[in-house]
Design a protein around this nucleic acid. Structure first.
Ligand SMILES: [Mn+2]
Ligand SMILES: [Mn+2]
Ligand SMILES: [Mn+2]
Ligand SMILES: [Mn+2]
Lengths: 217, 217
DNA sequence: AATAATTTTTAGTTTTGTCTAAATTTTAAT
DNA sequence: ATTAAAATTTAGACAAAACTAAAAATTATT
């Protein structure tokens, strides 16, 4: 499988887990910053290889084969992110681009030994689940902070936006995976939240709250 | 720089260190298992980018830029090999193909942090030197076992052939980097050597002796 | 020095993945 | 039910990196 084919599969996989319908050509094109015509060409090729179900004008979904292949790429991406943070001392906002490259290294032995070396982690540095060697994923209950009621006590367990800007904002506010977050009050006007984060009070916008995953304690 | 350009540079670099002349189109083609015409095309492109000195029909050599670029690829290749052996428990005959892929990952931060993580090794699992971040190489005195006189005591410090077959032969004979090797006698007829390796007697052909690097004690 | 053999380059194709522009299909709006 | 708008596909072109076959240059041999 080529570098490019792998990136298409991964994109379709991510779009499928967020939305839950057939994926449109344009959605793929937008996410990959390419043109719809290029997407169409690739979808034909992937369909030929039985990696996607594709009917003209009808959108696309992953086949069993395609889904497993996509999960293996995601597995590699997230394991490498763990490696970079845990072993090489990268910060969580620096790992994505390097992992985008490392995810395409082809060696089952490598990825499984890496998995062992890292202690078979189930989540990456952003709280996203890591598929095991068979593609199984441990699903953890989590909700967006924006969807939680007042006076609830929670733990931060993930981020929805993984951009450098957002992650660095969280660093600045000392919010990390594992931080305790209590919702003190919500401002009606703009849905901003008054929080207690690790015993420090903090006000965050609804945009921030809509990108933080938490678990109720 | 593309994957392919990097492979050409690396090949020219390796050919240059072995031979010490201008490198021929055919030599590159043979090493890369490609056609001479493809090599010519690429040499033009590399010359355009000031990575090689190329004049039609006259062979090719690396420019300063090209040499540094090649060394950085070799650096990555060898550091990854150390990682695979030291941290992931690969054996020395399994690492080359994976390192061929990993050497193309583009991130200065990654390779320098990896270097630190590994304790700034100066040699890879096959005894080959690892260039530092500036391209400097610590050259270690070593000679082929086939060029050493009788009754000399030596330490194995490297291999010339790094094929799986040769490395597995060495494993079978319990010869590794650091093994003590004493030459007991040489057979005139076929230049085979009677050795004492780690206090075990062993006979090896001249082909073996011509692929083992040793240091006199 | 002339010719033969070898090496290298050029010219013209092919494949992969991309693009633009035009045509087609689907969806939305009147 | 038409028409307009949007989404998608097709057609044709291009760049990268490979190939084959033919031409040109170099090297070796007589
Ligand atoms: Mn990532
Ligand atoms: Mn991640
Ligand atoms: Mn190697
Ligand atoms: Mn090596």
């Amino acid at each position: 499988m080529t570098f490019s084919e792998e990136n298409y599969l991964k994109t379709i996989y991510h779009l499928t887990t967020h939305l839950n319908t057939e994926i449109s050509t344009n959605a793929i094109a937008e996410k990959m910053e390419t043109k719809a015509s290029s997407v169409t060409d690739m979808l034909k090729k992937l369909a030929e290889k039985d990696l996607v179900n594709y009917k003209k004008y009808q959108g696309v979904s992953l086949t069993e084969n395609g889904q497993l292949a996509a999960k293996m790429i995601v597995r590699k991406h997230r394991l490498w992110e763990v490696f970079l943070v845990e072993k090489l001392d990268f910060s969580w906002d620096e790992v994505h681009d390097v992992a985008e490259q490392l995810e395409h290294i082809k060696s089952e032995k490598l990825i499984n030994k890496l998995d062992t070396f890292l202690g078979n982690p189930t989540e990456d540095p952003h709280g996203d689940p890591i598929p095991d060697a068979n593609g199984n994923i441990i699903k953890v209950e989590k909700q967006l902070l924006s969807e939680i009621g007042i006076a609830k006590k929670t733990i931060c367990v993930g981020v929805r936006d993984t951009s450098t800007e957002f992650l660095q904002y969280l660093d600045k506010q000392k919010i990390a995976l594992g931080s305790s977050i209590e919702i003190l009050s919500k401002e009606e006007f703009d849905a901003s939240l008054h929080l207690k984060v690790n015993n420090q009070e903090l006000v965050v916008s609804s945009k921030i709250a809509g990108n933080l995953y938490v678990q109720l304690i």
